[in-house]
């Protein structure tokens, strides 16, 4: 991405924030609906410093998120490998994978409560369900795109299947796997935060829901800024890593 495009993007976001700020100060958006953006960051600082629940809830959410991402990425990678190895199975499952995100996975939450109860297990499964298919599809695409000549080189080098997988196929597939990782992380964040709204008694998502129910706009917007900032930072970091890999792998 060029610096010019980056500056334009930042300018667009800055302009939107400025418009919101002006609308809030002009009273067109009343304070029961939204506090001015300029107050959101100080409100977040207050929450971080004064709220006794803040760090335990952050740790709870991050723990669930880490488990969901781990499950979706590892599970998606292994399922992707297995399905890719059986072309007939792939032909059967491909339409399901393609339409998976058209199905509101969230409607499964009553089933998750029945199976796992209200608590971290349901949340982690929900988060993993959100992310896993992105990783499955990315894994299969990644394997498809390994140049056949590299597999021939591995055979001529007499590498054996394990060394071929670890030393040749995995690095050759890694740019596309990182794309899958990025999507799986994004979907898992959505699954965990949204799940905490209804499936949890703890966590940052739960605190947002409580603040909303109690008309505590300062806390609610402070936490929304935190969640948005976290999602943008993680996505940007993985995006930068993905771009760096693509730059190294492919001729510009």
């Amino acid at each position: 991405m060029t610096t010019r495009v980056r500056i334009l993007q930042l300018a667009l976001v800055g302009a939107a924030v400025l418009v919101l700020e002006l609308l809030c100060w002009a009273g067109i958006i009343n304070r029961f609906t939204m506090i001015p953006p300029s107050e959101m960051v100080p409100a977040l600082a207050d929450v971080v410093v004064t709220a006794p629940w803040f760090w335990p809830d952050v740790i709870y959410t991050l723990g669930n998120l880490a488990a969901a991402i781990g499950l979706s990425v590892l599970g998606g990678f292994l399922i992707g490998l297995a399905v890719h190895a059986v072309p007939r199975l792939r032909r059967v499952l491909d339409p399901i994978f393609t339409s998976y995100y058209a199905v509101p996975t969230f409607v499964l939450y009553p089933l998750l409560i029945v199976f796992f109860g209200i608590g971290p297990t349901s949340l982690i499964v929900l988060g993993a369900l959100f992310g896993v298919v992105a990783m499955v599809v990315a894994t299969m695409t990644a394997i498809d795109r390994i140049p056949p000549v590299l597999v021939k080189v591995a055979r001529v080098s007499r590498l054996g299947w394990l060394r071929t997988a670890l030393l040749m196929k995995l690095p050759a597939a890694s740019p596309h796997l990182v794309t899958g990782l990025r999507l799986a992380v994004a979907y898992s964040v959505i699954g965990i935060i949204a799940g905490e709204f209804i499936l949890s008694t703890e966590g940052i998502g739960r605190r947002v829901a409580l603040a909303y129910n109690n008309f505590d706009n300062r806390t609610m917007y402070a936490l929304l800024v935190l969640i948005l900032g976290f999602a943008i930072a993680v996505n940007s970091g993985l995006g930068a890593f993905e771009q760096a890999l693509h730059r190294r792998w492919y001729r510009s």
Binding site: V149, L150, K152, M168, P171, A172, W249
Partner: peptide, 27 residues
């Protein structure tokens, strides 16, 4: 695949994730 056979293919078979030195040292 016998020992002591080296093959150079028409397609680009360099390893994109390794630099030139490490590519050559791979085998």
């Amino acid at each position: 695949v016998a020992e002591d056979i080296g093959v150079v293919f028409q397609e680009d078979a360099t390893f994109a994730w390794l630099n030139v030195w490490d590519n050559v040292a791979f085998g």
